[in-house]
């Protein structure tokens, strides 16, 4: 059962095409992350689903009910789609309980639902506080509880963590994900943060220029992005040209195993963590490279390397205390099969 289906959605603001045939399917009970750079149309998509904007063309179906498309536009308050805006948008004149109970009728308010969702987001006992007495993270928790309270068909989260500092963000992400799952809610999270999308969502949808470029589980999207732009956007990527013959392809990094058989000019995706760095000549099939620099991240080190033919390569290695200095010679091997994407890499990503 799909909670939300968007088909061929088009929406333009003057000359700007915010949505240009976007397609999206969200299974009930799942958390889907819509990931894209700013200006890719992801917020417009969310606002169209919520009913704040009218589609120019296309169709939006919630469960078995068409809410947008072919001249129909169900207003926002009859859709059962609750939003969690970027800044929380708590009602400043209502206390926490008043905010959370806003979408409930009097009987539901007395039923204990308010306390129930407050407990879900870890704010049991905060009902009498006013919004200005809460920290930014707590305000976002209340906004999530408020959206969950009326058991909507769909919860839409619009970059809800972007205004918080990094330390707070990780904990809040995990808690919000747990609360959504515990309540059985279907949710769509809009974000530009790859880490957030990959770590929180059951399904990731990558958007670019008003279209969905890739939809799949976080693992699928990361391992098999399908095109070079998506490959670069969801993580660090080494992209190499090659002409495949069956399930192997010769590349500047040696002959590599492909994740599928093909016979064409392709672009090969090697993730930096697939690259092994050894002393030169330690392995017979190692490719020689020179260290140009390194970025130390604590748990790992990202090495900037250059092959002898000039190809730049990035490798991510766990920090084991080995010292690599610029100019040092190393040997590179690649772990596991690499992802084959059709066509030569476009010049500009």
């Amino acid at each position: 059962m799909n909670a939300l289906v968007v088909r061929a959605a088009h929406k333009a603001f003057g000359p700007v095409k915010a949505l240009d045939g976007a397609e999206l399917t969200v299974p009930a009970g799942s958390l889907t992350a819509v990931l894209g750079p700013s200006g890719c149309g992801k917020t417009t998509l969310l606002r169209c689903v919520a009913g704040f904007e009218h589609l120019d063309a296309g169709e939006i179906t919630l469960g078995d009910r068409a809410v947008s498309g072919s001249g129909r536009h169900v207003p926002a308050h009859r859709r059962g789609v609750a939003v969690v805006p970027q800044d929380g948008a708590l009602f400043p004149h209502l206390d926490v309980a008043g905010n959370v109970g806003y979408g409930l009728d009097a009987a539901q308010r007395r039923s204990g639902r308010v306390d129930q969702v407050l407990e879900l987001v870890g704010l049991a006992g905060y009902g009498r506080r006013m919004p200005h007495q809460l920290s930014g993270g707590q305000q976002q928790r209340v906004a999530v509880a408020r959206a969950l309270a009326p058991r909507p068909r769909l919860v839409l989260l619009d970059e809800p963590f972007s205004a918080l500092d990094a330390g707070l963000r990780a904990g809040l992400r995990a808690d919000v994900r747990a609360a959504l799952h515990a309540d059985g809610a279907t949710a769509v999270l809009v974000t530009h943060d790859q880490g957030e999308a990959l770590s929180m969502a059951d399904q990731v949808v990558v958007m670019h220029q008003g279209r969905v470029r890739r939809q799949g589980t976080p693992l699928e999207v990361y391992r098999t992005p399908g095109d070079p732009w998506v490959a670069r956007f969801v993580g660090d990527a080494v992209l190499l040209p090659g002409t495949a013959g069956g399930d192997r392809v010769p590349t500047p990094l040696g002959e590599l195993a492909l994740d599928r058989a093909c016979h064409d000019t392709i672009t090969v995706l090697v993730r930096p963590e697939q690259i092994r760095v050894t002393p030169p000549d330690a392995a017979p099939d190692a490719v020689a490279a020179t260290v140009r620099g390194q970025l130390f991240h604590g748990h790992d080190v990202v090495l900037d390397l250059r092959l002898d033919d000039g190809t730049p390569v990035t490798a991510r290695v766990l920090d084991r205390g080995q010292q690599l200095v610029p100019g040092q010679r190393v040997g590179l091997t690649v772990d596991g099969p690499v992802h084959a994407m059709p066509g030569p890499e476009p010049v500009a990503g």
């Binding site: 919520a50 207003p75 308050h77 805006p85 009602f91 906004a143 959206a147």
Partner: peptide, 14 residues
């Protein structure tokens, strides 16, 4: 701000 009113409408109020 409009975002408050949108949040209210998304919670089912006309």
């Amino acid at each position: 701000p409009p975002s408050l009113e949108e949040a209210a409408r998304s919670l089912g109020r006309g």
